[in-house]
Write a protein that binds this DNA or RNA. Structure first.
Length: 260
DNA sequence: ATGACAACGCAACGTTGA
């Protein structure tokens, strides 16, 4: 069972790379973030023709999250429970029965960026993380194979940035942000990549500006968090780095967890 | 060298993102 997450930075601009990713990488489940369109503008027919069921929470211009699944989606909920999202579409959760692989609960999450830190945007980010942590704690009690996947907009550790010193005052790397991420891990969720490797220099985002990709000045901010029941089955993690080098790339690349 | 990007809405350039 292969589950991936990808911030596409506009699903309409990324339709060709998305369809080629579905065909070549063949994920069973794919979580998307930053759709940047309302549900009526989502390329549903193209995605369904590629063999996927879809649930999504769209929004004009900004945000927007989706879950794509080869197997039928049995139930889905829109929005982070207990959180006043103020009109921002950043969370969708679904239960998928994946044949012999069993039942999975999956969330596609687009955590707020939070910059600049001295504004309400940062307070919103921390408030989102607090609500996410409370919900993640409640989900643990279900004792299911759960994957909380998405763009967390948090660099967990210095080894997750090409130049950590450049990020010390940024909402993505401030101590409060990193502590909020650690609180999720401390509940008992595993950061899939860190369960697989200790290597530094593994990134999921490279800025469009200043040749960041060519210089490999990246950061790791897209994460798959696994409940104990999911983590027990983790076989492999892969960052699909080559997607950043393709035509009209997103500034993020997909990351996969393969569960046995 | 102090610039360098992309997407949106909407038809000029300000806002947002990271």
């Amino acid at each position: 069972m292969r589950i991936a997450t990808w911030n596409v930075n506009s699903v309409r601009q990324r339709l060709a790379p998305l369809l080629s990713f579905l065909k070549e990488s063949n994920p069973d489940i794919l979580c998307l973030q930053e759709l940047k369109c309302e549900e009526t503008a989502f390329p549903r027919m193209e995605v369904e023709d590629a063999g996927y069921n879809v649930v999504l929470h769209g929004q004009k211009t900004f945000n927007g999250v989706a879950i794509l699944s080869k197997s039928p989606i049995e139930e889905s909920t829109v929005g982070l429970p207990g959180f006043d999202h103020e009109g921002q579409s950043r969370y969708i959760e679904a239960v998928v029965s994946n044949g012999d692989a069993g039942v999975f609960r999956v969330a596609s999450i687009y955590c707020p960026n939070g910059n600049p830190p001295d504004t309400p945007k940062y307070a919103y980010k921390l408030r989102f993380m607090k609500a996410l942590t409370a919900h993640a704690f409640a989900l643990l009690k279900l004792e299911e194979a759960t994957v909380l996947a998405g763009d967390y907009n948090i660099i967990p550790e210095p080894r997750d940035a090409h130049d950590p010193s450049a990020w010390v005052a940024d909402a993505l790397f401030l101590p409060e942000s990193r502590a909020a991420y650690r609180r999720l891990l401390n509940l008992g969720y595993a950061d899939a990549l860190r369960a697989a490797t200790d290597d530094a220099g593994l990134y999921t985002f490279w800025d469009y500006q200043a040749g960041a990709w060519q210089k490999n000045k990246g950061i790791r901010i897209d994460h798959l968090l696994l409940s104990p029941q999911a983590a027990d089955r983790l076989a492999r993690v892969e960052i699909v780095k080559e997607m950043r080098a393709g035509d009209k790339p997103s500034d993020h690349v997909p990351i996969f967890a393969e569960l046995a």
